[in-house]
Structure formats: structure tokens, C-alpha cells
Amino acid sequence: MPDARDSILSRLRAAPRGPAPGSDFSVMEDRFFPPEERLARLRKMMEAVSAEFFETTKADWPRFLHGLLVQQGIGSILYGPGSEAGQRLAEEWPEGGARAVAYDRPMDSFKEEMFNGVEAGLTSTLGGIAETGSLILWPSADEPRALSLVPPVHVALLDPDKLHNTFWQAMRALGWSQTQMPANALLVSGPSKTTDIEQTLAYGVHGPKRLIVLITR
């Protein structure tokens, strides 16, 4: 509707305006956690909202995850076979126990299974944020969006060497405004939750009920 556009913009342009004020971001710059404390801070923040943490290694995580799922009675995990993590999982996934399901077709063709069939989804992360206890996710063709959204359990891999102080600092360090942003970038800071019924906290209202973070050393 070009008419609406033009009339709105011309009304806005006709208004008296002063110069745009500057912004002092020093409060964002100053926020600092010593590198050795960041992981503990992130864990504390995320555990406060019921995220679960496990420590494993870069070499061993697929086996560890398999064992964990079996131990917890989680029967299947959805993964993106094109991603680095997905390839590792496919190659190193032990026989038996939990089933690894490849997210290798458009969602539309297996919505039913995704919503009702798989019990967990695996994603990597770009890193974490100490201040707020958040994981940074950049879903892609190889690691689709629904992995961290639809299955009842979200398993996220976190490299403890990729922890930032704050969201703002992470965004700057990773140069987000200079790169092409993904279709969907996310911060995930815990399992899905709500306090809409009498301010009482309940988990898993729509998204994952559990968030399991694997720290890969």
C-alpha cells in the first residue's frame, strides 16, 4: 500500500527534529568476568532456571551423549547430518540404545514424527554468555531451527573456550553487524518456561522441557 507508506513517512519528515543524541556504551564495555570465572557464572545462571550441565571432552562427546541418553531413558535424538557435530554423531554413534534420527528433509515432510516421535534434538552453539547464562545458536541448513525447539529435550554442545562476558560484547567480537545474519539467530538461556499461572514457574510449556548442556573440553 504505497499511499500509506508515503503519507506516514511524509508526516514523520514534517515533524521538527533535533540532532540525534549519541550513546555512551561504556556500561556495556565495562561488564567483565575473568575468563576463569565465566563458565561458573554461566552455569550458575542457567542452573537457576533448571538447565542441566554435563562435562565431557571434544574427543568423546558422542559416546558420552549416547550413554547419557540411555541412562536417562531418552530413546531418540534428532540431529543435523550436514553439520560438523552431526557428522561426528553419525560416525561415532554406538549401536543400540538411543536412536539417532537425521534431520535431512524439510520439516514439512515429517512434522508428525518431529512433533510426536523424537525425544531430543542436538545443536552446537557459537559460544556462551556469562552475564546472563545464555547459549548463542545460529541455526543453518545443516543445523535447522527446530532442533532446539520442537523435541522435548534440547541438547547443546558448548565449548568452554568460547565464553563471552555479555551479549553485547559477543555480538561485537563475532562481528554480527558486518556479516550476513542467519535467517534466525538465537539466544537460549534455559528450557521453555512460563509464570503465567499465578506467577508460578512451570517448565516446558511449548518449547523443550529440558535443556542439557554438554561442556566439551
Binding site: 532456571v49 534431520y103 535431512d104 528433509r105 524439510p106 520439516m107 545464555s134 543453518s140 541448513a141 535447522p144 531451527r145 527446530a146 551479549f167 545474519m181 542467519p182 535467517a183 534466525n184 539467530a185 538465537l186 539466544l187 537460549v188 538461556s189 534455559g190 528450557p191 521453555s192 518456561k193 518449547g207
Partner: peptide, 17 residues
């Protein structure tokens, strides 16, 4: 819990969105 930043619809090759 979520900060959801949307920059485009599903891109070619993407499986959801």
C-alpha cells in the same frame, strides 16, 4: 529464555522456517 532474531524467511537448502 529465548531471544529470537529473525532476518529472513527460509533460505534455499534450509529445512525449516
Amino acid at each position: 529464555t529465548y531471544v529470537n532474531m529473525i532476518t529472513s524467511p527460509r533460505r534455499p537448502g534450509e529445512k525449516d522456517g
